[in-house]
Simulated scan of single mutants.
Amino acid sequence: MKLTKTLTAMGAVVSAAALLSACGSGTVGQSGSGNSAQPVGGKKLALIPGVQAEPFYISLQCGAEAEAKKLGYELTTQAPQKFDAPLQTQLVNALGANPPAALLIAPTDDTAMLAPIQQVKARGTKIVEVDTALKDTGVAVSSISSDNAAGGKLAAQTMAKLAGGKSGSVLVLDTIAGTSTTAARAKGFEDELKNTPNLKSIGIQFTQNEPEQAAAKVTAALSSTPDLIGVFATNLNTGEGAATGLRNAGKVGAVNLIGFDASPSEVEGLKNGQYQALIAQDPASIGTQGVQQAVAAIEGKAVTRNLTAQLHSITKDDMDTNSQYFYKQSC
């Protein structure tokens, strides 16, 4: 009786070993070979842009979604209601429970967003920066944006052409201190304007990305600077606020306004004379390249650390021939 029980137990062990052999030696979360774990997030990508419902980021999302689908990946997008580091941090932290294979993100602050993004990276997620970037260059595998300093330089050159040799002062409106992209635009503009002796900058002023503050800054500048000849607004909200300030003062067209980006409202403003020029980016291309670099990193292929998208100066005279650069409101 005791011998029978022993033989039965030995048979069970042998059967279990055979079953394991037939199924492969891997454990849960590993491939059949048992040599390596499956990548975190599988085929899932996440995109967290700077703010929701902004045409630039919608256009970027459209490019990213199309490329993800083409490459066999699933992309989900969540954006903060405002261009705000604490709000964006909440979205990044929410990824911790179910981290994606890669996170495409436009950091709303080049320093404050470091810690939450690092936490996601620590879980195995590949980080790709789109549009904006962290000061710490060791976090992301790739960073894709416009050459924002070159965009500012292009805006200054355009301002010089619009001035036509007339002398005057120029106001630069930036968004929030610590935003890498707009800071580069403002600096590029300031540096290039020094090559135009008839134009002088009255400095960079911050608007906290609020149109109302931009309008107020323009109103104050018009009062304190009688020779104000131009305003360079580094993004959509500052541009719309600046246009409001000029309109309220009856200075539309008298003061040259150059905006950055080509949202539907800015394009309409260019058409009706509220803007004299727009510096358009190619956000769809940024989204496309962002997904390409993310997938390459996930699949162990070569990744390019820094990529740039083209910029275009558009005036009312050539806006029809540059309509392909106008931003979308939906995909």
Rank of each mutant, 00 (worst) to 15 (best):
A160N: 09
G63R: 01
E129T: 12
V218N: 02
M10H: 06
S313C: 06
P49E: 04
T77A: 05
A101H: 06
K135M: 12
S263F: 00
Y327K: 04
S146I: 08
G300L: 07
Q205K: 04
G164E: 10
L278P: 00
M1H: 11
E54A: 12
N93R: 10
G300F: 11
A68F: 07
I258T: 00
M319K: 09
G96R: 14
P107A: 06
K70G: 05
T244D: 10
T27Q: 15
A249Q: 04
N235P: 02
K44M: 11
G164D: 09
T179A: 13
T175A: 13
V28M: 13
F260D: 01
V172T: 05
N256A: 10
L3R: 09
A22S: 12
T158Q: 08
A102N: 04
A163F: 06
A155Q: 04
A53M: 13
N98Y: 11
I127C: 01
G26C: 15
V170Q: 03
N148L: 00
A149R: 12
M319A: 08
Q119M: 14
A112T: 09
P99M: 14
E65Q: 12
G250P: 06
K271C: 07
Q61A: 08
F206M: 04
Q289V: 10
F326H: 08
G41Q: 08
I258L: 04
I105F: 03
L103H: 00
T315L: 08
P283T: 05
L193P: 00
N98I: 10
L3P: 06
L199G: 00
V291Q: 01
A186I: 07
N306W: 13
K121G: 09
D318P: 08
F83A: 07
G290D: 05
V139C: 06
N195F: 12
D227C: 06
M113P: 00
P49R: 05
L193N: 01
A16S: 09
T238K: 00
I117R: 03
A183R: 02
A214L: 00
I314V: 14
A133D: 09
S224C: 09
A122P: 07
A112Q: 09
S323V: 12
D320L: 14
N322L: 14
I314G: 01
R305F: 13
N148K: 00
D84F: 06
A18W: 12
A85Y: 08
A66Q: 07
G230S: 03
D174A: 06
A177N: 10
